[in-house]
Amino acid sequence: MKAIIKGKAFVLGNDIDTDQIIPAEHLVYKLDDVDEKKNYGRYAFSGVPIEQSGLPHGNVPFVKEETWQSEFTIVIGGKNFGCGSSREHAPFALQVAGIEAVIAESYARIFYRNSIDGAFIAPFETTNHLSQEVRTGDDLELNTTNGILKNLTQKKEYQLSSLGDIEHILHGGGIFEYARKSGMLKQ
């Protein structure tokens, strides 16, 4: 996890489920093959109904056709982000597409846990209704150490909730690194 994450915002609403993040038909590609895994970036958020894709206006493709990486770096969501299945392909797909952090009002627990234990993306929580304030394409700067989010476009600043217990797992690079450092696993 970088100390400062900088880039464009992609804004979504409440209850973004894992079928919207990566539709089930795409769960067949290898996760550890350099070329094949690009498909997860290519189809990330392809299950989001287009009118809700990139709020407030919608109709913004997350990944442009013929590419596998997104121009966006930070996803802003509402409540219950990542609900549904346990597919780790969901946070993985966002990582492959180039997402470094998600900021949502709340998370479904398996998505949250997968994001952390695999260290795919940093899942920050906020008490602000950011999905109604931030606009898709806004330039954001997130300080992952103190949890301060700057909206450079709108010249606004927000204090996000602390990552809490999970911060050292994310900083360590996932559950395996954490377990090695804490002596649970042999180096």
């Binding site: 996760l31 346990s86 597919r87 780790e88 398996i110 846990r113 997968n114 234990d117 695999g118 996932g174 559950i175 395996f176 377990a179």
Partner: peptide, 8 residues
């Protein structure tokens, strides 16, 4: 759980 936790 996800793949990483299952592998653990």
């Amino acid at each position: 759980i996800g793949n990483t936790d299952a592998a653990f």
